[in-house]
């Protein structure tokens, strides 16, 4: 596969402004092959704008982007041959049935043979559980059924890249579970770039995450890295029974400790210790506390965040600037 620096999606300073107001501001993004890349951000952060630019549905004001190493402006049709796309609110022709919609989609990619196209359509109907509704007009489809149809039409061309805009937003828990399962199953065949605000889903399936706020990228990292401290200083959690003031004094005097917060409850004091040097912390932090014979350590470990915490911290930090 021909990619930019080995990346399926590559953007450099990608910017979109409407009447001078920037919906997307200088986005630099690299999406590796075969990753499930979560694209997060509050409403209006610029996620859908980015996706529309990648698909050639809207033009960048400035900056560059490439998919499979091909320029999104010049080679848009060639790119779209290898992409499957599910819109945030998928819309289809209401007079068509699910089968006709998939047939119409497939014919943008394949000219024949007819029986193999029909077999592929059947496969997609089966995969998304729409076989029994295949010949019903989609006018009467529920939101969930439309979303399933969206997933089916996005995959009909065996895409190298699946772009999903809020794929699970309108689904019930069972539907969400199915969508995530399909995404995980497709990982070995394709790269998945998807926007969402359901952080639980991102944490479950994504390899990498980018967080967008007010059109600006505020974090981009492998999911483990984000959860282990969002790329900033590492934080250790320490729970001690004993003389809290002495432990506090010991910790505060260390030059490699950059932040210290404590919470006391039922004689147990829990510190959140931010450190500048992880190696030193792992070597010395616990030892330092244990040197105090009266202190009894009840808990120690590196604090891991859940994605919601990371997301909210980053967005709030960015908003307060």
């Amino acid at each position: 596969m021909n990619t930019s620096n080995g990346h399926v999606i590559y953007t450099q300073g990608l910017t979109k402004a409407y009447n001078g107001a920037k919906a997307l501001d200088g986005l630099n993004l690299e999406v590796p092959k075969n990753s499930i890349f979560g694209f997060l951000g509050p409403n209006g952060a610029g996620k859908s704008t980015t996706i529309k630019m990648l698909l050639g549905l809207t033009q960048p004001t400035s900056g560059k982007a490439a998919i499979f190493g091909r320029d999104i402006g010049r080679d848009s049709v060639a790119i779209r041959k290898r992409v499957g796309y599910l819109a945030q609110e998928p819309r289809y022709y209401d007079h068509m049935t699910a089968r006709q919609t998939l047939r119409y989609t497939a014919r943008f990619f394949y000219s024949g043979p007819r029986d193999l196209i029909e077999a592929r359509i059947e496969e997609m109907l089966e995969l998304t559980g729409l076989r029994d509704k295949a010949d019903r007009s989609i006018k009467g489809f529920s939101g969930g059924e439309r979303q399933r149809l969206g997933i089916a039409q996005a995959q009909v061309n065996y895409p190298d890249l699946l772009i999903l805009d809020e794929p699970a937003a309108s689904l019930d828990p069972m539907g969400r579970h199915d969508v995530l399962e399909v995404m995980e199953r497709l990982r070995k065949y394709t790269t998945i770039f998807y926007s969402t605000h359901i952080l639980e889903d991102v944490q479950r399936v994504s390899d990498r995450v980018a967080i967008l706020n007010h059109g600006r990228l505020i974090a981009e990292a492998p999911i483990e890295e984000l959860l282990n401290g969002s790329g900033a200083s590492a934080v250790y959690s320490l729970a001690v029974k004993g003389d809290a003031a002495r432990v506090q004094a010991r910790l505060a005097s260390q030059p490699w400790i950059c932040s210290l917060t404590s919470e006391a409850k039922d004689g147990l004091t829990t510190w959140q210790v931010g450190v500048t040097d992880e190696n030193v912390a792992e070597d010395q932090l616990l030892r330092l506390v244990l040197e105090d014979r009266e202190a009894r350590v009840k808990g120690f470990g590196r604090k891991t965040h859940n994605l919601e915490e990371v997301f909210l911290n980053l967005v709030q930090k960015e908003n307060s600037k």
Partner: peptide, 26 residues
């Protein structure tokens, strides 16, 4: 940015060929 349009065999062409599907001509 690498935006060269060197002809490469796309995975969808490989899979389509495997399935016997004929891609639409450009």
């Amino acid at each position: 940015m690498n935006t060269q349009s060197k002809s490469v065999v796309s995975q969808d062409l490989i899979l389509a060929a495997r399935q016997g599907l004929i891609p639409v001509r450009d």
